[in-house]
Amino acid sequence: MTAVTTSTQEEVTLFREMTLRFFAQEITPYYDEWERAHIVPRELWRKMGAAGLLLVDMPEQYGAAGAGFDVCQMIQEELCRLNFHGLASGYNIHSNIVALYLNNIGTPEQKEQWMPRMVTGEVVTAIAMTEPGAGSDLAGMRTSAVRDGDSYIINGSKTFITNGIHADMVVVCAKTDSSAGAKGISLFLVDASLPGFARGKKIEKMGQHCSDTAELFFDNLRVPANALLGAEGRGFAYLMQELPRERLGVAVQAIGHAQGALDLAVAYVTERKAFGQPISQFQNTRFKLAQAKTELELCRALLEKCMAKFVVDEMSVTDAAMLKFAATEMQLRVINECLQLFGGYGYTDEYPISRFYRDARIQTIYGGTSEIMQEVIARSLVGR
């Protein structure tokens, strides 16, 4: 693991203020339109790059801000708090996941090829693990990469790929040894402009509408041997190595999103009246809010503990699983209760709480389902 740095509180505060100004100017006025269009404009990535918001905690030599990893997490949290969860998911893939793989595993040449353009937003990235018939069973993937001289030939397909429509480069997981199970998986940095790379139509989803999600197809896609990321056959180990930060990022999103929904509900019940008084004065309302606040703060405390462990390379796979499981399940419960406080209005698109509700649902599925998280945790206690 590459050394992880954190920022001072003053630095985080300055970054937050800059980030919120950018959101207010470049995202808030247009986000509803993007949701209706079911995609964000490609130009937004370049604007985020120009504002210094992409790959903020990557090395300065590639044009990045060189901030702490906590700044990257703060940006995701604020996106979700402001109800921009669809954009947060794409940001997480690009800045918090693909950038991490490249920085920790890539060669100097690979980093020079891709990272400066990832920082500017000229290149948008994705990671392709999930397949139509495999789901969470990464060892069961069928996409193959066969060595042919100084190239690999990739064949197969992937599904549910975030940033799949806009992606210029995709980290593709493929089998280089079909007989070796998980030990036969390798990772490749695939240029999406190469012949044999194709995208299916954008997948329409229940929520996170502006997050572009696609199927990807590889038909005798030839990539140079130097597109191999890390060592051949080590792909599964790399995935396990980097998954903890991915799950930490999902938990950050869950906490920011739950906070945003709670803020919205508090404002609504304070203003809305029934039976001659504000809804906030009814005991049921007060107790629901108290329970939501308590659950949220418990998960925030666990997040802070895990972030502190991550910085010193002590956050385990089990820690990350517990954090993701707790935070995303809390997110669903809290937002469900917040929507209930809106009554019938909560079920209408006119009220933003409905988007909070729709966008949250995927959180207990991607990045490892809640069921997989519980299995990981159980194995740490009683084995397989």
Results as ranks from 00 to 15, higher is better:
Val223Asp: 08
Ile203Ser: 03
Gly235Gln: 14
Asn96Arg: 12
Lys273Glu: 14
Leu302Lys: 08
Gln281Phe: 01
Met315Arg: 04
Gly260Asn: 08
Val12Asn: 06
Leu341Pro: 01
Asn103Lys: 15
Ile203Val: 08
Met1Ser: 03
Asn163Ile: 14
Glu232Arg: 14
Ser7Ala: 14
Leu102Cys: 15
Lys47Met: 14
Ile127Lys: 11
Gly181Thr: 00
Leu189Ile: 02
Val119Thr: 01
Met18Trp: 04
Arg358Tyr: 07
Met169Phe: 09
Ala301Trp: 02
Thr162Arg: 10
Leu44Asn: 08
Glu329Cys: 11
Pro278Glu: 07
Glu33Phe: 00
Leu341Ser: 12
Phe197Glu: 09
Gln283His: 10
Thr5Tyr: 10
Arg272Leu: 05
Tyr62Glu: 09
Tyr345Met: 13
Ile353Glu: 10
Leu228Pro: 12
Lys324His: 05
Asn96Trp: 00
Ala254Gly: 10
Lys293Val: 07
Leu20Asp: 08
Leu187Gly: 03
Phe282Ser: 06
Ser151Gly: 09
Thr8Ile: 01
Phe188Glu: 09
Gly184Arg: 05
Ala227Gly: 03
Glu215Ser: 15
Gly233Pro: 11
Arg379Ile: 13
Pro244Ile: 11
His38Glu: 15
Leu302Gln: 00
Arg333Asp: 09
Gln340Leu: 10
Ile362Glu: 11
Gly368Ser: 13
Asp70Ser: 10
Glu371Phe: 04
Cys338Glu: 10
Leu55Phe: 09
Ala214Pro: 13
Tyr345Gln: 12
Asp212Phe: 04
Thr19Pro: 04
Gly344Tyr: 01
Gly149Met: 10
Ala51Lys: 11
Phe325Ala: 13
Gln277Asn: 04
